[in-house]
Simulated scan of single mutants.
Amino acid sequence: MSLQPIEPTGDPRIDHKTAVLNGYTYHYLYGVPPGGQYKATVFLIHGWPDLSLGWRYQIPLLLDMGLRVVAPDMMGFGGTDAPESPPNPINVYSLKRASDDIAELARQLGAQKIILGGHDWGGAVVWRATLWYPELISHVFAVCTPYTAPHKDYVSLEDLVAGFLPQFQYQIHLASGEVEKSVNSEATIRQFLKGLYGGRGPNGEAAFEPEKGVLAENLPKIGESKLMNGKVLDYYVREYSRNGIHSTLNWYRTRKTNWEEDLALLDKKVISTPSLFVQATYDSVLKPEMSRNMEALLPNLTRDEVAATHWALTQKPAEVNAIVRRWLESQGFGESRSSL
């Protein structure tokens, strides 16, 4: 039996809730298995340009396995606050701040231990949260995002692009302030989302290239996306129109802040927590070679791979779910109630 994805609104399996975490209001999706009993709590952390609903195919699986699910909109996204920076310091968008807010939400929900899963920026968050709060995170998994250890030397985005990761050029563009000039209305947000999720123009025009960034001149030409359409697209457009796209791009302005905060973790690089990394074979940014040698710092790592692009969660949900289910079962969380 395949599990139906969570609907954007009115889905009885989840509630839309809010919580004040260290001074800012977060929106999150909350679900418990039928009957209200659960074996453990799973937090799911999304990336860019996504929302908590990006986990819509995985939430039903986890509920079906008897787990409580918490999926927040991260700072600057959707129904969560989007503080302006400046005047607020950019570290309200840092990995440390996200980790602190996850820990606070877990405390408010009475979860002494959580399983933590992430995708894209959410993957970076969950690896760092496991370093900051090893006593809270019982298990951790990331889809697409490899673990990168804290480093004593600062490497700028420009140097990174000029060196090992030319495909990270888009991050310089996203941090520049240029994208907001062309993605600044419901209509342009709609075209932008369709394009980032694979929609193309009539002659194959793309809205995004890793070595360039967002291609504003192509946005009006973008057609329908197979991965982001209908009610889900409408929901994303509404949520991204709340505060505009600028606040979500602040995550790309935190590189130096993240490095500065990481300095406190230099002696804690090894993650002994049971972990799962799911590589997307055709991810054009987080390429397979970036995950080499992770075992050296993650002694309890399980690896798997799905033949998908960066949007593996929604492009190949059955395959991702099967990997996550197998891993959770191997960690003692038991079989799900339905065969998938």
Rank of each mutant, 00 (worst) to 15 (best):
S2T: 15
P5I: 12
T9I: 07
P12Y: 03
R13N: 07
R13G: 05
H16L: 12
T18A: 06
V20S: 14
Y24H: 15
T25Q: 14
Y26R: 11
Y26C: 08
Y30L: 13
G31I: 08
P33C: 07
P34D: 11
Q37E: 15
Y38G: 02
T41L: 08
I45T: 14
W48C: 06
W48R: 14
P49N: 11
D50K: 10
D50H: 11
L53H: 14
W55G: 09
W55H: 12
Y57E: 10
P60V: 07
L61C: 03
L63Y: 05
D64T: 00
M65S: 01
V70Y: 05
V70F: 05
V70K: 11
A71T: 02
P72R: 13
M74N: 09
M74K: 03
M74F: 00
G76S: 06
E84A: 13
L95W: 06
L95P: 03
K96A: 14
A98W: 02
D100G: 04
R107P: 00
A111Q: 11
W121F: 12
G123I: 01
L131A: 10
P134M: 11
V143H: 09
T145Q: 13
P146Y: 10
Y147W: 09
K152L: 06
Y154Q: 11
L157H: 09
V161Q: 06
G163I: 04
G163Y: 01
L165M: 12
Q167H: 08
F168I: 00
Q169D: 01
A175V: 00
A175S: 13
S176P: 05
S176A: 10
E178L: 12
E178R: 10
V179E: 04
S185C: 05
A187I: 07
Q191P: 02
Q191L: 13
K194F: 03
L196F: 14
R200W: 01
G204R: 06
E205Q: 13
P210Q: 09
E211W: 04
E211Y: 10
K212N: 01
A216N: 10
K221M: 10
I222Q: 07
G223H: 11
S225C: 07
L227C: 03
G230C: 04
K231A: 15
K231D: 14
D234W: 04
Y235R: 09
E239H: 13
G244S: 06
H246Q: 12
S247F: 02
Y252T: 00
T254L: 08
R255W: 13
W259I: 00
E260A: 13
E261S: 07
L263I: 04
L265K: 11
K268T: 06
K269G: 05
V270N: 07
V270S: 10
I271E: 08
S272I: 09
P274K: 15
P274I: 04
L276K: 03
F277L: 09
F277Q: 11
V278L: 12
T281N: 14
Y282I: 00
Y282S: 09
S284Y: 04
L286A: 10
E289P: 02
N293C: 04
E295G: 15
A296N: 11
L298M: 14
D304M: 03
H310F: 01
L313F: 03
Q315D: 08
P317S: 05
V320I: 14
N321L: 03
V324S: 00
R325G: 01
F333N: 02
F333T: 01
G334F: 01
S336M: 07
